[in-house]
C-alpha cells in the first residue's frame, strides 16, 4: 500500500499532513513560500495553505526564531526552516538561551511546541556554512530535543511526530539524501509509529555494531553490504534521536557483538561519537572486545568542494574501522 517517494517529497507530504491536521501549524523561513524552499521541501504549501500559514521571512534567523517563541507561547506550533545548517548560528542565542529553557524555568507553566528544521551535512559541493553538522552543539543543550531522519519513511513520520511534540525540536534533514527514494506507507496512522526518540536496528548483524544517523545511515548500510561479501556481519543501528539518546538497543547490540563503530560527518572532537563511546564503555565494559571506534569528519572547518570526498566518512573508512576493531 506504500508509495515510492524521495526523502524530500516525504518531508513535504509530512508537513502538508501536519498542516491539514492542525491549523495552528505555521511555517516560517527564507524563500519557503513562493519558491517552496531552496530544496523545495515546502513546495506548493504556500499555494495551498496561503501566505498567512507559509511565511516568507526576511533574512533574520535570530528574529525569526525569537518571534516564533512568542507565537509558540500564544498557542501556535511554528515550524521554522533554516535554509542551510550554517545559517542557524545567528539564531543560536535564541535557541540555547530562550527556546531550550522556557519550559524548565517556568516550571512547566508554558510549553514551546516549535520545530526548527535544518538541512545538514555535506556531500553536495556546497562548502562551509552550507555543509555543516551542528548536532552536537544542540544535543549539549539540556531542554532541546534533537533528531535526524535518514530515509523517506522516517522523514514522513518523524516530521509529523516532531510537530505534534510539545517540546522544541531541532529537526535535522540529511540534505545529500533528499533525492533518495524509498517506500512510504502514508495510509498508516501517526499514533502507531515507533516513538520519535527511539533508535532502530535497520540491519541485523552479529560481528560489529555500527551506529549512525542522518546521512551516514546509508553509508553504514553500504558498508554492511560490502562487509557481507567478506563474510563479516555488521549490525547497523539508526540512532534517529541525538537527544535524548535511546541507548537500550545500542547496549543490547554492543553486548552481543562486543565491537562498536560510530559514524558521523561532524568533526570527531567532542562529537556524538565521544558521548556514545563513553556511555557504551560505562555500560558494556566487560562485553567489549575492542575500544569503541569513531569514523568522523576531521577536526577542521568544512573543506572546499574538491576536498569534501576526503573529509566525509565513506564506505572504505567504515570498513577500515571494522578491520581495526578486529585487530584488537
Amino acid at each position: 500500500m506504500g508509495e515510492t517517494l524521495t526523502l524530500g517529497k516525504a518531508l513535504n507530504l509530512g508537513l502538508r499532513r501536519a498542516m491539514e491536521d492542525d491549523s495552528k501549524v505555521i511555517l516560517m523561513g527564507e524563500d519557503i513560500g513562493k519558491l517552496g524552499g531552496v530544496f523545495r521541501i515546502t513546495d506548493g504549501l504556500q499555494k495551498d495553505f496561503g501566505d498567512e500559514r507559509v511565511i516568507d521571512t526576511p533574512l533574520a534567523e535570530s528574529g525569526i526564531v525569537g518571534t516564533a517563541i512568542g507565537l509558540a507561547l500564544r498557542g501556535y506550533r511554528p515550524v521554522v526552516e533554516i535554509q542551510f545548517d550554517g545559517f542557524v548560528y545567528p539564531a543560536y542565542d535564541q535557541i540555547v538561551c530562550q527556546v531550550a529553557k522556557m519550559h524548565f524555568r517556568s516550571r512547566g507553566k508554558v510549553r514551546l511546541p516549535m520545530v526548527i528544521r535544518i538541512p545538514f551535512g555535506g556531500g553536495i559541493g556546497a562548502v562551509e556554512h552550507h555543509s555543516e553538522s551542528p548536532e552536537a552543539y544542540f544535543s549539549h543543550t539540556a531542554g532541546l530535543k534533537v533528531v535526524a531522519c535518514s530515509n523517506p519513511s522516517d522523514a514522513y513520520w518523524m516530521i509529523q511526530q516532531a510537530i505534534a511534540s510539545d517540546d522544541p525540536i531541532i529537526f535535522l534533514e540529511p540534505k545529500r539524501r533528499y533525492w533518495e527514494k524509498g517506500e512510504v506507507d502514508t495510509a498508516e496512522e501517526l499514533s502507531v509509529q515507533e516513538p520519535l526518540h527511539s533508535s532502530k536496528v535497520v540491519r541485523p548483524g552479529t560481528d560489529v555494531t555500527v551506529l549512525a544517523y542522518g546521512p551516514m545511515v546509508r553509508t553504514a548500510l553500504d558498508a554492511a553490504n560490502a562487509a557481507a561479501e567478506d563474510g563479516r556481519s555488521l549490525e547497523v543501528i539508526d540512532l534517529r534521536s541525538m537527544s535524548p539518546l535511546d541507548m537500550g538497543p545500542v547496549y543490547a547490540s554492543a553486548k552481543r557483538t562486543g565491537r562498536v563503530v560510530v559514524v558521523h560527518e561532524a568533526a570527531g572532537n567532542l562529537g556524538m561519537g565521544s558521548e556514545l563511546a563513553a556511555r557504551i564503555t560505562e555500560e558494556c565494559f566487560y562485553s567489549l572486545e575492542a575500544p569503541v571506534l569513531r569514523v568522523t569528519g576531521y577536526d577542521t572547518p568544512y573543506p572546499a568542494s574538491r576536498l569534501e570526498e576526503e573529509y566525509l566518512p565513506d564506505l572504505d573508512r567504515v570498513l577500515d574501522a571494522v578491520d581495526r576493531s578486529f585487530g584488537w
Binding site: 535570530s62 528574529g63 526564531v65 525569537g66 518571534t67 516564533a68 517563541i69 512568542g70 507565537l71 509558540a72 507561547l73 500564544r74 498557542g75 501556535y76 542565542d93 535564541q94 538561551c97 530562550q98 524555568r105 517556568s106 507553566k109 508554558v110
Partner: peptide
C-alpha cells in the same frame, strides 16, 4: 515571569525580549 498575567518574563539576554514580544503580538 507570570504568564497568567501576561508577564512573559524578565530575561538575562539583552534585547531578547524584543523578538518574543513581537511574536506574541503577532499571534
Amino acid at each position: 515571569a507570570d504568564f497568567s498575567k501576561g508577564i512573559f518574563g524578565a530575561n538575562g539576554i539583552v534585547g531578547a525580549g524584543g523578538a518574543i514580544a513581537t511574536g506574541a503580538a503577532w499571534a
